[in-house]
Design a protein around this nucleic acid. Sequence first.
RNA 1: CGGGGCGUGGCGCAGUCCGGUAGCGCGCCUGGUUUGGGACCAGGAGGUCGCGGGUUCGAAUCCCGCCGCCCCGACCA
Length: 483
Amino acid sequence: MSQEQGITPRAQDFSAWYNDAVMRAELADYSVVRGCMVIRPNGYAIWELMQGALDRMFKDTGHRNAYFPLFIPQSFLAKEAEHVEGFAPEVAVVTHAGGKELEEPLVVRPTSETIIYASFAKWIQSYRDLPLLINQWANIVRWELRTRLFLRTTEFLWQEGHTAHADEADAEREARLMLGVYRRFAEEWMAMPVITGAKTDSEKFAGALRTYAIEALMQDNRALQAGTTHNLGQNFARAFGVQYQTAAGGLEYVWNTSWGVSTRLIGGLVMTHGDDVGIVCPPRLAPTQVVVVPIWKSDTERAAVLPAAEGAARDLKAAGLRVELDAREGMKPGAKYYEWEGRGVPLRLEIGPRDVARAQVFAARRTGGKAPIPLAGLVAGVQAALDELQRSLLEAARQRREANSRRGVTRAELVELMSGEGGGGFAYGGFCGSAACEAAIKEATRATVRVLPDEEFRSSPAPATCVWCGAPAAGEAVWAKAY
RNA sequence: CGGGGCGUGGCGCAGUCCGGUAGCGCGCCUGGUUUGGGACCAGGAGGUCGCGGGUUCGAAUCCCGCCGCCCCGACCA
């Protein structure tokens, strides 16, 4: 009886658990380059599924993919004052290439607004060219002080949408539309419930008019900003001279938006559904949705079981499911179970001599519970089980989030809620809107305003006074300790 | 950059206090027996003990310097 080293229980050390879960699932590995990670095939497969779903959603909303350079002239970054200030500390700069010093240093993109809007300025002439709806899948470099696999690494993969519009209303509509796309993706694909809303000035994107975000609550009660959209106003249009002629013949600056989600989502997926065994993949994003494990004792049994298992796997694949048949010899079924559980495979089908005799398979859910499925209705039965898993993961995550959300908090409650190691969760309360109160709360509790929640998430009745200073509230805010 | 841990076969560790030339578990390879929740037996392969100096007859172990990684804070998707 040999136990492989288990992973750290969540309750003991959540950070250690996260690292263990990621490593056990072989999603990623540390690189020789500080702060950078290697995304392993298991992790990259999840990213590809995410990309596929998001890309379809972007195309369905009228966007087209393009690709812009990794290198940006340093002077471009400086054209928008807030933007350069926001990103300067974390920008990597190339000063030498081709064996000599460059005339102008190139920055490795921390985001691509500047280089993209330089192109937009060339492409946009008239109101007939608008809206211009572009997305790019790319890598990004931000020199972070402290990194965590998927959650914050020096280089990461993302998509960044960039659009240009004729007026503010259309840009605003776009920023809200894509926020909705992100929300739908998080909930329907990742089974990760989110709240949506606007960022405060201190949390908004460097150079944006307004920033919106989806925020999810992880199992350690810290919030994860899982996607952002920005209404950039005319800030970049002015900096890069992106103008168009109106129908009336006038010359106007365009209104831009940008929006992005990154491989950070994989970290969110891990921390939303994982348990003390490892990661749990929601079926729609599971690289392997079903693993079939044949069980036999003798060659006779093997001869009966293996073809049945192969047949089951074939039928499921034919139905469009992502299936693996694990017929490895010399490995006990239990060992296979542990391996696939660590990878988060949502459904395992066990098929042994007894099952063959009864024309059934035994289906074990990653979240617990075993039940037989008759071979006659295998595809439908498996599909139903996967659908149910997808639903129940979202529901469980939603219940956990609600159980860890407090509405109408007082100043004392906010402090209490955020204190200690396990402290956190979403705290809803009145907010006067002042930067002073926001900073004071951060100082006192280490919690920040995650969003000024959208209507759907607001409390009723609305809080009347600011949690901190007691002045009349300008609105409601959601505080949490953030990743 | 501050605080705390840690660098020894692929992974996890012991050995370091008290110097004597490297060991355990897992994994890996070969053969056999096994297989309804992490199999067993036998035989193997694999290590400049993070790096550089120093002390010593002799250093994983003692001394000096450096590097790297992880965790916690300041910055951030």
